[in-house]
Design a protein around this nucleic acid. Structure first.
Length: 639
RNA sequence: GCCGACGUAGCUCAAUUGGCAGAGCAGCUGAUUUGUAAUCAGCAGGUUACCGGUUCGAGUCCGGUCGUCGGCUCCA
C-alpha cells in the first residue's frame, strides 16, 4: 500500500501528498490566499469538511465564498451559530432545521414565547460572542440508535423525528461547536470564527415540515458574509430593490391601486390601462400570427358545469359562488369549462385540428388573505389563456409551439426565466396511465428543445401535469407566469369529439396554456423589471413637450398635435413653471422623451430633445425626432 | 388561514412618561414668464383604519374587527 495519495485539481493538475492529508493542507499548498479563503471542499463531487483526510485518489476542489456551494456551507454554519446562541439565551428551546437558503439561512425553533425583533438583537450579540470564541466545528459519527437516544434524552422531538426518517442503517453525523451539538450532515466551516459579518433579518412563523396541520415554529432568518462591507452592500442592495417594488411604483406612476374595499381586487388607472391595452393588443397580434382564434366566455356559469368539470370536487375552496333565480352559480376560477362549451357547440372534423382557442379570461380565485401581494398575487385576474384541441400525434408539436411562443414573448421584454415540470398531485382525476403519458409528452418536448427544468413532484393541476415558466421580481422572488398543461381528463368528462378520417368519432386531447400568465402579475413583473421606466412602446406617456414660456405654447401644441396624429402619446406641460421644474417632473414620471421648446426652437423649427436616460441630446429637426420615436415604438426597442 | 410587525393629511414622516394632532411634498389662490432635476407667498387639508373598553383626559394603554407588510417550498 502506498504512503502517498494523489489529488486531481479542477485545472486537471495532479499532486501527490502523504496519506492523511486534508483538503485544508492541499489549500495551503496551493497558496496562502486560497488557504485563507477556503471554507470547505468538494471531493469526488461530495461536499466535505476541510479537515477531513482525503482518500487515496480523488478530485478535489477547494470551495470559497465565491462559489454558490461555498456560500451555502458558510451560511449553514452561521445557522448553527444562531442555534447555539438561541440555546444559550433560551435553554428550553427545541431545535428543528436550519438550512442555508439563497442569500442567507434560517433556523426553526420551538420556544414558549415568540421572538420579538428586540430578541433578535440580543441573539445577534450572543452570536458575535460565539464567533469571537472561535469554536471549532467537530464532526462525530454515531449509530442511529445512539443518536436517537441522545436527542430523546434532551427532549429534542424534532431531531428524533428527523433521525427516524433516515434509512435504518445510516450512520448519523453530529457537529459539535463548544457546548452545542446538532444533528447535521455537514459539511461545516473549520470554526465559528470564520464567520465575520452577520445580520438577523426577520422572524416569522413556519409550520413544522411546511405542513399547516402541524405545529407552527418560530423561524429566524439571517444572512452572513466574510466581510462587513459585503454585508452592508447586500443590505443596501435590498433597499435599492425596494425602490423598484411595483406596489410603490404603481402608486407613484399612477398605474393602479388596491383598496381596503376590495383586497386582492386591483383597480387599473388611466395610465395603467394604456400599458395593459398595449400589452393586450400586442398579444392579440402575435396570437393571430401564431394561428390562434380569440373567444370570450362568461364569468358566471351554473354550478353543475363545475360539478362536471371536477372543479366542484377539487377546487371548491378557491371558488366564489352566487345564486341567480334560486339556481346555484359559480364565478369562474378557470376558463376551460366555458371554452369547452364553445368547442362542443358544433361538431368538429379532424381537419380543423389543432384548434387553438385563446381567451383573455377574467377569473376569480379565493386566495388565502395572507398570500395577497400587490398585482403578483390577487383574487381576480385576467389569464391570457388558450385551449388547444388536438390529435394524439399533434401533442408534441403543439407543446413545442407553446414553448416557442412563450420564449418569443418573454424575449421581447428581455426576461430571464426558468422552467418547472409539475407532476400528478394527490387530489387528481384520471388514471395513472394517462398521467404518465401526459407527463412523458411534456418531458419529451422539453428535452427536444434542450431546455433545463426542475421537477416539482405532486404540484400539477388536478386534471393534468404542467410545465411552468417562472419570472423573478425585484427581490429575486419567483412567480409562475406561463404554464402548459396537458389534459386527457376534461375531454373525457365533457365527452368531446371530432370526426376522424375514418368517419368515426374520436376524443381530442387538450392543452391548457398561458404565456404571460395573468395580465396583472405580468404587469407587476414588467414594472419591477423596468423599474417603471418602460420602453417607449409601453410607456403611458411617450413624449412630454415642455414650453419655456407662454409664447412657446402655441408651437408646442402644434408639435404635440402632429405627434398625436401619428399615434404618439404626448402631453404638453403648459403650467406656469420653470423648465427645470417641468424636467424634474417628467423625469420622475419616467417619460422616455422631453421636448424643450423655447425661442431658438421656435425660430429654427427644431426641438431640443432630452432623453430620460440620455439627458440633454441637443437640438434636432422635428421630423427627425418624429421618425426616431416612431421607429422606436414600432420596433419595441428597449430604449 | 397561521405567526410576527405595522396602520396619523393624497404621499413621506413627526408628536417626551397618556396632557391643545404637526412638518415637507402634492393640492388650491396669487405673484413671477422662466433654457435642461424643485421660484416665492398665502390658503386649505384629519372621526389618528374601524368598533368597544380603561382613564379627569387615549394617536399613545387594553380587547375585538378590517387592511397592509414579511414569512409559512428549497428538506440534519
Amino acid at each position: 500500500m502506498s504512503d502517498k495519495i494523489s489529488v486531481t485539481l479542477p485545472d486537471g493538475g495532479v499532486r501527490e501528498y502523504p496519506v492523511g492529508t486534508t483538503s485544508a493542507q492541499v489549500a495551503r499548498d496551493l497558496g496562502p490566499g486560497l488557504y485563507r479563503d477556503a471554507l470547505a471542499a468538494k471531493v469526488d463531487g461530495e461536499l466535505v469538511d476541510l479537515n477531513a483526510p482525503l482518500p487515496s485518489h480523488s478530485e478535489v476542489e477547494i470551495l470559497t465564498f465565491a462559489s454558490e456551494e461555498g456560500r451555502r456551507v458558510y451560511r449553514h454554519s452561521t445557522s448553527h451559530i444562531l442555534a447555539q446562541a438561541v440555546k444559550h439565551l433560551y435553554p428550553q428551546a427545541k431545535f428543528a432545521i436550519g438550512p442555508a437558503i439563497e442569500n442567507g439561512f434560517y433556523y426553526d425553533f420551538e420556544v414558549p414565547e415568540n421572538f420579538t425583533p428586540q430578541d433578535l438583537e440580543q441573539i445577534e450579540k450572543e452570536m458575535l460572542k460565539i464567533i469571537q470564541a472561535d469554536y471549532p466545528f467537530l464532526r462525530e459519527e454515531v449509530g442511529r440508535k445512539e443518536a436517537l437516544e441522545y436527542f430523546a434524552r434532551l427532549g429534542e422531538q424534532y431531531k428524533v423525528e428527523l433521525i427516524e426518517d433516515l434509512p435504518p442503517d445510516t450512520t448519523v453525523t453530529l457537529y459539535r461547536q463548544g457546548d452545542f451539538v446538532d444533528l447535521c450532515a455537514g459539511p461545516h466551516l473549520p470554526s465559528t470564527g470564520k464567520v465575520k459579518a452577520i445580520k438577523l433579518t426577520s422572524v416569522a412563523g413556519a409550520y413544522w415540515r411546511g405542513d399547516e396541520r402541524r405545529k407552527m415554529l418560530q423561524r429566524i432568518y439571517g444572512t452572513s458574509f466574510p466581510r462587513q462591507k459585503e454585508l452592508d452592500d447586500y443590505l443596501s442592495m435590498l433597499e435599492e430593490a425596494a425602490a423598484r417594488d411595483h406596489r410603490k411604483l404603481g402608486r407613484e406612476l399612477d398605474l393602479f391601486s388596491i383598496h381596503d374595499e376590495g383586497p386582492g381586487f386591483p383597480f387599473f388607472h388611466a395610465k395603467g390601462m394604456i400599458l395593459r391595452n398595449e400589452l393586450e393588443s400586442f398579444w392579440r397580434e402575435v396570437h393571430t400570427q401564431w394561428g390562434y382564434q380569440e373567444i370570450k366566455t362568461p364569468i358566471i356559469l351554473r354550478q353543475d358545469l363545475w360539478e362536471r368539470s371536477g372543479h366542484w370536487d377539487h377546487y371548491q375552496e378557491n371558488m366564489y359562488f352566487t345564486e341567480i333565480d334560486e339556481e346555484n352559480y359559480a364565478i369562474k376560477p378557470m376558463n376551460c369549462p366555458g371554452g369547452i362549451l364553445v368547442y362542443k357547440n358544433k361538431p368538429h372534423s379532424y381537419r380543423e385540428l389543432p384548434l387553438r382557442m385563446a381567451e383573455l379570461g377574467l377569473v376569480h380565485r379565493h386566495e388565502l388573505s395572507g398570500v395577497l401581494h400587490g398585482l403578483m398575487r390577487v383574487r381576480s385576474f385576467t389569464q391570457d389563456d388558450a385551449h388547444i384541441y388536438m390529435l394524439p400525434e399533434q401533442i408534441k408539436g403543439e407543446i413545442i409551439g407553446v414553448i416557442e411562443l412563450t420564449d418569443y414573448l418573454y424575449r421581447i421584454f428581455g426576461f430571464d426565466y426558468h422552467i418547472e415540470l409539475s407532476t400528478k398531485p394527490e387530489k387528481a382525476i384520471g388514471s395513472d396511465e394517462t398521467w404518465e403519458m401526459a407527463t412523458q409528452a411534456l418531458r419529451e418536448a422539453l428535452e427536444e428543445k434542450g431546455l433545463e427544468y426542475r421537477v416539482n413532484e405532486g404540484d400539477g393541476a388536478f386534471y393534468g401535469p404542467k410545465i411552468d415558466f417562472h419570472l423573478q421580481d425585484c427581490l429575486g422572488r419567483t412567480w409562475q407566469c406561463g404554464t402548459i398543461q396537458l389534459d386527457f381528463q376534461m375531454p373525457a368528462l365533457f365527452e368531446l369529439e371530432y370526426t376522424g378520417a375514418d368517419g368515426e368519432k374520436h376524443r381530442p386531447i387538450m392543452i391548457h396554456r398561458t404565456c404571460l400568465g395573468s395580465i396583472e402579475r405580468f404587469i407587476g413583473i414588467l414594472i419591477e423589471h423596468y423599474a417603471g421606466a418602460f420602453p417607449s412602446w409601453l410607456a403611458p406617456v411617450q413624449v412630454e413637450v415642455l414650453p419655456i414660456t407662454d409664447r412657446h405654447l402655441s408651437y408646442s401644441r402644434q408639435l404635440a398635435e402632429k405627434l398625436r396624429a401619428v399615434g404618439v402619446r404626448v402631453e404638453v406641460d403648459d403650467r406656469n413653471e420653470k423648465v427645470g421644474y417641468k424636467i424634474r417632473e417628467a423625469q420622475m414620471a419616467k417619460i422616455p422623451y422631453m421636448l424643450i421648446i423655447g425661442d431658438r426652437e421656435l425660430k429654427e423649427g427644431t426641438v431640443s430633445v432630452r432623453g430620460r436616460s440620455e439627458g440633454d441630446m441637443g437640438a434636432m429637426s422635428f421630423s427627425r425626432f418624429q421618425e426616431r420615436i416612431r421607429t422606436e415604438i414600432a420596433e419595441k426597442a428597449f430604449n
